[in-house]
């Protein structure tokens, strides 16, 4: 923890940056938790290594500045998940925003599976989250983000997220979502959420999508799977609650992985 809160009057909250680096030989040259962001190497269920973010349960509070930096070096395979949902809560100063930065870099022939649990914005919380992904041309990415507006039966806090993915230095996906009482109007109207309380994105980037594009398809009434303009697929879903949202995203991921599995020989050959 680089700048711990000095006392009850402290104007700023926690500042913490956790860092992960994965190498092609399966090692983790860098695994450094910080403050509320504790990291554990956990048993991998597939090729490559796995890291679980633990203890994020109470963070971030208003005023906190948290960051996770992850580098998956050329040829490495890494899965990052979390032990529990992240719950954004109001800080001592109700007007203070929390900031959460996620920076992911995936090298040539490397794969990152970024599969954290949900982000729940509790009543009164104010969180600004920014995820930046930099992918090498042959990098592979599976990234899931789920936002839940309020704990069960609770009014939501204010959440602003931005997910930006660049591949080979060029923009592939850029999406901002802004919900809750501090967001501009209309966020709960018929164009944006229409009363749904869980929103999710599943982004899969693989250069095989460039040569063998996926057809867009509906996944029920309030979710769809679409090919991006570049070699990626995005699932966008809204649902009444986190459980139904996860069910949709899991089914989509499974279908995409099955499809990719069929490509493995060709995919492995480029390594």
């Amino acid at each position: 923890m680089s700048a711990p809160a000095a006392g009850p009057q402290a104007p700023t909250g926690v500042r913490a940056t956790a860092r992960i680096a994965a190498a092609a030989d399966g090692s983790l040259p860098l695994l450094a938790g910080d403050g509320p962001l504790a990291l554990r190497r956990t048993r991998a269920t597939r090729a490559g290594s796995r890291v679980t973010v633990v203890g994020a349960m109470t963070a971030p509070l208003g005023g906190d500045r948290l960051a996770i930096e992850t580098e998956v070096r050329a040829g490495a395979r890494l899965t990052v998940d979390s032990a529990a949902a992240t719950v954004a809560l109001p800080g001592r100063d109700p007007a203070a925003e929390a900031h959460y930065e996620v920076r992911l870099r995936v090298g040539e022939g490397a794969e990152l599976r970024w599969l954290p649990e949900q982000l729940v914005c509790a009543r009164g919380s104010r969180l600004r989250m920014r995820t930046r992904v930099e992918l090498a041309p042959t990098a592979r990415l599976v990234l899931r983000e789920e936002q839940v507006l309020g704990r069960y039966g609770e009014q939501p806090g204010t959440l602003a997220t931005r997910l930006t993915a660049h591949r080979a230095g060029r923009p592939l996906l850029d999406q901002e979502l802004h919900f809750g009482p501090g967001a501009p109007g209309g966020w709960d109207g018929g164009a944006v959420l229409a009363g749904h309380r869980a929103v999710g994105q599943l982004l899969v980037v693989d250069r095989c999508f460039g040569t063998d594009p996926v057809e867009p398809r509906m996944l029920g009434e309030t979710a769809c799977l679409v090919p991006l303009a570049g070699p990626g697929v995005l699932v966008t879903a809204v649902a009444p609650d986190a459980l139904l949202l996860r069910r949709t995203l899991d089914a989509a991921l499974e279908a995409l992985e099955r499809r990719s599995a069929a490509d493995v020989p060709a995919h492995a050959a480029v390594r």
Binding site: R162, T164, D174, Q175, E176, L177, H178, G190, A191, V192, L193, A194, H196, V199, P216, R217, M218, E221, T222, A223, C224, V226, T236, A237, V238
Partner: peptide, 14 residues
């Protein structure tokens, strides 16, 4: 800005 509306994206496909 990259502000997006999930339902507009989803229903456009439908």
């Amino acid at each position: 800005p990259a502000a997006s509306a999930p339902l507009l994206d989803i229903t456009a496909e439908a």
